[in-house]
């Protein structure tokens, strides 16, 4: 699925780049400080990405007005999304998303959806990897799942938050394999990885960037990646292993795919001209060495999408989350 989207996005990007004549007249520009709302706490993946963008924009002078990052993490991010939803027509407010764009309204009933926002661009997709402690004997995802089955529900899966992406993946694994896990929610991905190193949980589905330091130190090991293809990063990371040495979960008989959206949205009711300014801005951001470094450090999937492609992708994802969460019994009681 992603492969075709990848090439589609590339085509779209090329088309846009090849049409410089569309912006002859003075284009719209922000006239005051631009706020990036982060619907999560400081230090997490979305926060890091927002602050990287902020840093890049100010370092390379990509915009005349300053850019600030504001965390609004209340109600699993609902607070941040409601703020943007309520700022109709305000072109100086962006929101960076994680999967809680889909999961929060479904799990808590807080009233918002992607339809209340104006999509700007998908900057990247964050990967998920199945990790276990390096001292454990499991060599493949299959070994691990078999052991979990035999343990009969006593294996502990650590993850970030409740009824969010990590738990959705856990339930998907359970559905797929019949193994049962005890899911233990923690506040942040970094803490989850340390719990794995300390052997307080048996496995995690951390993002690459959250666990890479422990992998390099030989404390944890990746079993498989929840993507349809292997990660496209070839530099050696841990010993002689690179990210591309991690097999896909599907190849290990664990047919679960999950990627997390790292994209930007704006308030409803903004003009196309305003959206285009930010699309251009993010294109410039993507060209900087700092951005490329962040991408390779975190082994991100660098799909870039805007406009209709992006909207289609988001609406498909929402449907998928609704199905997954319904199947897991995570929907808020009405």
């Amino acid at each position: 699925m992603l492969k075709s989207l990848n090439t589609g996005a590339l085509g779209a990007a090329l088309l846009l780049c090849g049409a410089p004549f569309t912006t002859v007249h003075a284009a719209w520009e922000p006239t005051r400080t631009v706020e990036i709302i982060v619907p999560a706490g400081p230090g997490g993946g979305a926060d890091q990405m927002a602050r990287t963008v902020q840093g890049i924009v100010s370092k390379h002078h990509l915009m005349k007005q300053p850019m600030v990052v504001i965390n609004k993490s209340g109600g699993a991010g609902g607070e941040g999304f409601l703020d943007v939803k309520g700022s109709k027509g305000n072109p100086h407010k962006l929101v960076i998303t994680l999967s809680n764009l889909f999961t929060t309204p479904l799990a808590t009933g807080i009233p918002f959806s992607y339809k209340d926002l104006t999509p700007v661009a998908m900057l990247a997709l964050d990967e998920f990897i199945l990790w276990v402690n390096a001292d454990k004997p499991y060599k493949t995802a299959k070994d691990y799942v078999d052991a979990a089955k035999a343990a009969n529900g006593t294996f502990k899966m650590g993850g970030t938050g409740s009824k969010q992406e990590d738990q959705i993946i856990t339930v998907a694994i359970e559905k797929q394999t019949g193994a049962k896990f005890t899911y233990i929610p923690y506040k942040g991905g970094g803490a989850v990885a340390v719990q794995l190193v300390g052997n307080h949980v048996d496995s995690t589905v951390n993002n690459p960037i959250e666990a890479v330091a422990h992998w390099r130190a030989g404390k944890v090991k990746p079993l498989c990646v929840f993507d349809s293809k292997k990660l496209d990063y070839h530099d050696k990371i841990a010993g002689d292993r690179a990210w591309d040495s991690v097999p896909t979960c599907k190849s290990a008989g664990l047919d679960v795919e999950y990627l997390m959206l790292r994209g930007f949205f704006m308030a409803p009711g903004v003009t196309d001209e305003q959206v285009n300014f930010y699309v251009d801005l993010f294109k410039k951001v993507r060209e900087t060495p700092e951005w490329k470094k962040l991408m390779s450090d975190g082994a991100f999937n660098q799909t870039f999408m805007t406009g209709k492609d992006f909207l289609n992708w988001v609406s498909k994802e929402e449907k998928r989350h609704e199905d997954l969460m319904k199947a897991a019994g995570f929907l808020a009681a009405k």
Binding site: G43, G55, A213, R216
Partner: peptide
């Protein structure tokens, strides 16, 4: 947590 985010952006991975 924010300092940590900074380290990552500078390409310094905290860890052993």
């Amino acid at each position: 947590a924010v300092l940590l985010g900074g380290l990552l952006i500078w390409g310094l991975q905290p860890g052993p």
